[in-house]
Amino acid sequence: MSALFNFTSALLCLLLLICTSAYIHQLFPGIMDRNKDGAFTGVFWKCARVGERLSPYISLCCIVMAVSMTIGN
């Protein structure tokens, strides 16, 4: 089954995208800031901004997701 049809998996993919984009932006800020316009690269820039500005909430969501995955399996 695809991750897009399962809400938990889609949420996990979104959290991973946000965390990865924020980490890459921390390492290479020039590359992401230069490509913030556009359909494909703009998504990564926006996810990096969300990850940077809401990092306590994103980390809390990652912990909750990890606990729920552990309990669910």
Rank of each mutant, 00 (worst) to 15 (best):
L14I: 12
I24F: 04
R34C: 08
G38E: 00
A10T: 03
I71R: 06
A66H: 08
A22F: 00
D33H: 02
I18Y: 00
V67T: 05
T8C: 11
F7K: 09
L12P: 04
S2M: 06
Y23D: 05
A22M: 04
S68M: 11
F28W: 04
K46G: 09
V43H: 03
R34L: 12
V43M: 06
G72R: 15
L14S: 09
T70L: 14
V64A: 13
S21M: 04
T41H: 01
C19S: 08
A22E: 00
L15Y: 12
I63S: 07
T8H: 05
M1A: 13
R53C: 10
C13E: 07
F40C: 00
N35V: 01
Y23G: 01
S68P: 01
C61Q: 13
F7Q: 12
A22G: 06
K36Q: 14
I18H: 01
T20L: 06
P56I: 11
L15N: 00
S2W: 03
Q26L: 15
L12A: 13
T70I: 15
P29Y: 07
L27H: 12
S59E: 14
I63V: 09
S2K: 01
L54T: 04
G72F: 12
Y57H: 14
C47T: 04
P29W: 02
Y57N: 12
D37L: 15
V43N: 00
R49S: 02
T41D: 04
R53Q: 11
S21V: 03
G72K: 12
S59L: 15
L16V: 12
K46M: 11
S21I: 00
A3N: 04
A39H: 03
F40N: 00
D37A: 10
P56V: 05
N73S: 15
D37G: 10
L4P: 07
V50P: 01
L27A: 04
N35E: 05
I71S: 09
N6E: 13
A48F: 01
E52Q: 13
L54S: 08
C62A: 14
M69K: 15
R49I: 08
T20M: 07
V67P: 02
R49M: 06
G30N: 02
R34Y: 07
N6L: 10
V64S: 09
L17Y: 13
A39K: 04
F7V: 11
C62Q: 06
L16W: 10
D33Y: 05
L17V: 13
L12C: 12
G72H: 14
A39G: 11
K36N: 12
C47V: 04
C62S: 09
R49Y: 00
L27I: 10
S9P: 09
S55H: 15
L17A: 10
M65C: 06
M32V: 09
F5S: 06
T20Q: 01
L54I: 05
L54R: 03
I24C: 12
K46F: 09
T8M: 03
L11E: 11
S2N: 02
H25W: 07
R53N: 13
L54M: 08
I58A: 07
I24G: 07
K36R: 15
P29I: 04
Y23S: 07
